[in-house]
Amino acid sequence: MRLRLTERRPSRADLRVFAGYCLAAGVYIAIGVIVTDFLLSVWVGMAYVLVTAWAIPMAVRRFF
């Protein structure tokens, strides 16, 4: 089966999503460098990305 893997460049929407994840990653990294325990748990990592990359953007879209 041929999937949509043929585009050579990311679309504007892809880049916008990537920028959001980069922003979330920047905060995660800053916290982790200061409090290394924050980096140790995969559950904390997953909860963090769920909140910052999905819940907050969804709430912002819904209320503003």
Binding site: A25, G32, G45, V49, L50, A53
Partner: peptide, 21 residues
């Protein structure tokens, strides 16, 4: 949307953690 984020989470976790450490 949450499922998509969960799918991406391990990549986010691994790469962010690599940079942080």
């Amino acid at each position: 949307g949450a499922l998509l984020t969960l799918y991406r989470a391990a990549f986010f976790y691994g790469s962010s953690r690599w940079i942080a450490w």
